[in-house]
Amino acid sequence: MLTYSAVGLKEMTVAQLQDENRQLELQILALKNERARARARYEETIKKLQATREHLLQIERGVDHFPKDISK
């Protein structure tokens, strides 16, 4: 009888631990997703900012090389 109870208790503990482990795995997945989302947002922002920076460098060069006499 005692053996049966022990097995029952163990089964319950295993189920609880499995559930806890599953929740932890879900948390890991959520953190990985959060990282991927942040990365995608970051990359898109950086791409846009780099394009703007490049664009402004071209304007700067344009200002530098602008002819002193535009009639030419």
Binding site: K10, L17, L24, Q27, I28, K32
Partner: peptide, 30 residues
Amino acid sequence: EIWRKKGQLSRLDTEITANREKIQQLTIEN
């Protein structure tokens, strides 16, 4: 049967500890 469950329990415990550590590490990294 009890011995087998014990083995399963210790495996689960190890996995849970590893996952907890992973969560901590991921949180810091994020």
